[in-house]
């Protein structure tokens, strides 16, 4: 078990390094391949009025003329131990972990990211709770009553659920429940959990449901398929032969056997989501990470976008690690390998 844990940890660390390289390459190497010069890269860090000579100077100071590996090394080092940016007009400190420094807002990007993590996280955790509970419950019932009216309706709704885009379901539900009926506050109404838990949940209810609708469909289908398989296994017959109640047979023996693929997909979905639910945050006006990335893109604020992307990648890597560990919890045969 311990060696499994260590191996997974090393693999996760490796994944983070690879992801950071790819992220770096996308933002610093790809533009150069596309024709950007070190000056045009540097010009994003100074005002429009800067002269050619100043830009050249800054490009040099910010290291845009160094070989690519050196640039990556300096950038990665900055993430780990912090760094300073000398852009001529002054020296800006960016303490560790430095995910980047936004010359547009004249601030390190991390504090703003930190401010937004709870919002995206609130959105993700509530939606995840809803979609796992509803998806798994519907999936189990569908499998037990295969071919029934319930099963057919549930699976049709599930198919529709995955096919409907968030910006459509989100807008429809907003216009109906918020504007017409007034049951929930309209968008842009985030209240921190610590301030008022009720308002927190009330304000997030609509985005939660909208997001859960999209995901739960997939979970229902996955659970149904898994349950149909495991309920036909020999060990289910054994469980019944022991005299277990049907409820225990289904929940303890059947569902447990069908859990592995659900755990996998959940880790990946959740990891992706806490990196920023771009569409949902935009539709519902939630100032989370996804919105920050969009904003950074619009403002051509490269470090800000890079910071969010890097963090999102980190979340996915961590989610992967958690999934691997959960595997070992769910399936003892994994531990032995």
């Amino acid at each position: 078990m311990l060696s499994y844990l260590i191996r997974r940890l090393i693999a996760a660390a490796g994944l983070v390094v690879v992801i950071s390289m790819i992220t770096f390459a996308i933002f610093y190497v790809a533009p150069r391949i596309g024709g950007a010069t070190s000056e045009s890269m540097a010009s994003r860090y100074v005002g429009r009025s800067a002269t050619g000579a100043t830009v050249e100077q800054i490009a040099e100071r910010l290291g845009f003329n160094d070989p690519i590996p050196v640039q990556y090394w300096n950038w990665a080092k900055g993430v780990v131990v912090g760094t300073t940016y000398d852009y001529g007009a002054g020296v800006e400190k960016c303490p560790a972990p430095c995910l980047g420094y936004s010359f547009r807002t004249q601030q390190p990007v991390l504090p703003e990211i930190k401010r937004r993590i709870p919002i995206t996280f609130s959105l993700a955790i509530g939606a995840a709770f809803l979609w796992v509970v509803s998806g798994v419950a519907v999936g189990v019932l569908s499998a037990l009553k295969r071919g029934s009216i319930f099963d057919r309706i549930a699976m049709t709704v599930a198919l529709a659920g995955v096919s409907m885009p968030i910006f459509w379901t989100g807008l429809i539900s907003l216009s109906y429940f918020s504007y017409t009926l007034g049951w929930t506050p309209p968008g842009a109404s985030y209240v921190p959990l610590t301030e008022n838990p009720l308002k927190w949940a009330h304000g997030l209810l609509l985005p939660w449901i909208t997001l859960a609708l999209l995901f739960s469909a997939q979970y229902a289908r996955l659970t149904r398929a898994g349950m149909l398989e495991t309920m036909g296994e020999d060990y289910i017959r054994t469980a019944r032969a022991k005299g277990l109640r049907e409820r225990t047979v289904v929940m303890k023996h059947g569902l447990r056997g069908a859990l592995t693929p659900i755990v996998t997909i959940f880790g990946l979905d959740f990891g992706l989501l806490i990196g920023g639910a771009v569409l949902t945050e935009t539709v519902f006006g939630l100032p989370g990470l996804g919105q920050l990335a969009i904003q950074g893109t619009k403002n051509n604020d490269l470090p800000q976008v890079l910071g969010v992307v890097l963090l999102a990648a980190l979340f996915v890597a961590v989610a992967n690690l958690v999934v691997d560990l959960l595997y070992a919890v769910v399936d003892p045969r994994v531990r032995a390998k």
């Binding site: 060990y235 017959r237 054994t238 032969a241 023996h253 447990r256 399936d331």
Partner: peptide
């Protein structure tokens, strides 16, 4: 009570 043919598949692998 009953005993089955293939004890590997007849026992739950996760318990």
């Amino acid at each position: 009570a009953m005993i089955f043919q293939d004890p590997l598949s007849a026992m739950h692998p996760y318990y």
